[in-house]
Nucleic acid binder design. Sequence first.
DNA 1: GTGAAAGCGCTAACAC
DNA 2: GTGTTAGCGCTTTCAC
Lengths: 330, 330
Amino acid sequence: MADLARIAGVSVSTVSRALSDSPLINPETRERIHALAREHHYSINVGAQNLRLKQNRTVAVIVPYDPETRQHLSDPFFLSLIGSLADALTERGHDMLLTRIDADRLDLAAQVWHTGRASGIVLVGQWHHHDQLNALADARMPFVVWGARLRGQRYATVGSDNTEGGRLATAHLLAQGARRVLFFGDPGLPEIGQRHDGWRAALTAAGRRPAAADVQAVPFVTARIEQAVERLVAERAAFDAIFAASDLMAMTIVSTLRRCGLRVPEDVRIVGYDDIALAAHFLPPLTTVRQPIEAAGVALVESLLAQLGGAAPASALLPTELVVRQSSGR
Amino acid sequence: MADLARIAGVSVSTVSRALSDSPLINPETRERIHALAREHHYSINVGAQNLRLKQNRTVAVIVPYDPETRQHLSDPFFLSLIGSLADALTERGHDMLLTRIDADRLDLAAQVWHTGRASGIVLVGQWHHHDQLNALADARMPFVVWGARLRGQRYATVGSDNTEGGRLATAHLLAQGARRVLFFGDPGLPEIGQRHDGWRAALTAAGRRPAAADVQAVPFVTARIEQAVERLVAERAAFDAIFAASDLMAMTIVSTLRRCGLRVPEDVRIVGYDDIALAAHFLPPLTTVRQPIEAAGVALVESLLAQLGGAAPASALLPTELVVRQSSGR
DNA sequence: GTGAAAGCGCTAACAC
DNA sequence: GTGTTAGCGCTTTCAC
């Protein structure tokens, strides 16, 4: 910038003002300096600018991974969510810092804020860390979590209406004539727990008694899902419908069922969750509960920016929608 | 930091040195200052540090999207690649800035470097911008591209051996007894073009004559792929094998074929490309050419860091491997 | 309308 | 071993 000032024959302050389009500057000097900057491929050093302005238009998007499986980022749903976040942030003039951390080291997430690398944080995945998250909120770190709204929560979450989603899916299966609807997924995780609540509510509303044996508490690990299905088939368990906690899980279940000689949807009807792009092109096309990905990215960013603007952490519950395709019968 | 110095009763330089574990400092003062920093939740401001050190441990990963389809980021392969990059960068102590830009505005990619936000760039996707990329290289911007090595290229690329991959896939189909192997994908894109070359080479080596009509130059757009398949079936085209330019494309082709009443692999054998996680659990499990994703992230980062260290742009060609599953017959 | 100068939070000579 | 000081590239008050 000093160089540019010398070339233009003005002071650095004039250059600074010209480049920031200050109204104080003579329009023609302003234009001349802009031209010079272009010609010499000069752009303002954002680091120095941030230091001086004590601002920081950078948001860290942090993906905690399960230390055992490292599984998380392989799910297309989360990956799409990241794409959606990238767009939402770019649109609002923020940069996106992407980091993966061990889910058990959430304190590392705070680090990126303490060091001033990012002015706020989007956490993609809540896992079991409700208490740690509350602690971070108490430290007044601006952040939002993609996940479920929980009792006694002092931080902001954005998520789809999991309970309603689970209810919709299960009610649909019952309406299709299902006699016994299994739930696949680990209810210990907050979001999955709420989908499980929805499943239970729909069964109860229909006068059924949800049995503990109807819950297959499997994690998002392909091999475990396959095992669970194979065991059920081997035991000749009497079930004719499954509500799976994610599309990826549903797809694995379908493949395994068919390998075991069962037909979908003739023998077993199935509904997934997420509505990832592949769901529509799977065979059979997957009935699923859609989570609005674009809206999710926007809602997360809006909630965070509001906090950065001084507002208290505000959560959002996004609407879910049942997308009926062929895997649940017709 | 000044505050910390006051609390500790020393000067800022002592604090600075202590926190950077300088050997000049008395071990016990060092420890005392570390403890104080922890207690007061102080961490060094990276922005100021970078400004002073004129270093910047941040790498921008830029995903150009096709302005029409915005399709790119939806492919699980690219998303996994991003995950792999995040890991490789984190491991080497770099932050990752993720940005999506219009593929036609590659100059915006240079911006993030000019402004000092990132010290180097990883471009995920080469598209048709060979010349623009050469221009950026001439401007001495440190960057690597995930893509194909092309003639007259002055920038670094990292990619799998697409020609060999295409050859492997096609030779395998021929060995399985295929009479006519179609190629699905747009050979106008560098990487796809090389896969196409491999397809052609394998056919020629087997004494076949690759016909222009055997190339279905479809983009990565679901509807277009479906149309192409439907047209072939409607025309009663005589083909019994397909090599698809990506797994996602292969899956769409399989679904469409089956909707049209054709069986895979009995009527049509198919091989995909990438080996995304879902390929193994698809029905039928997909035979495919594996691109080594973890190695890819590492190779991209290594190439970039070498440039940052002053080396000339160096490209890498990663080995591909045919993974035989059931979609190609047995 | 433009310039001089102070200072954002840090590091590294250079002194002692 | 520790302190003093200059300066990284920028913005902005205050003077003119």
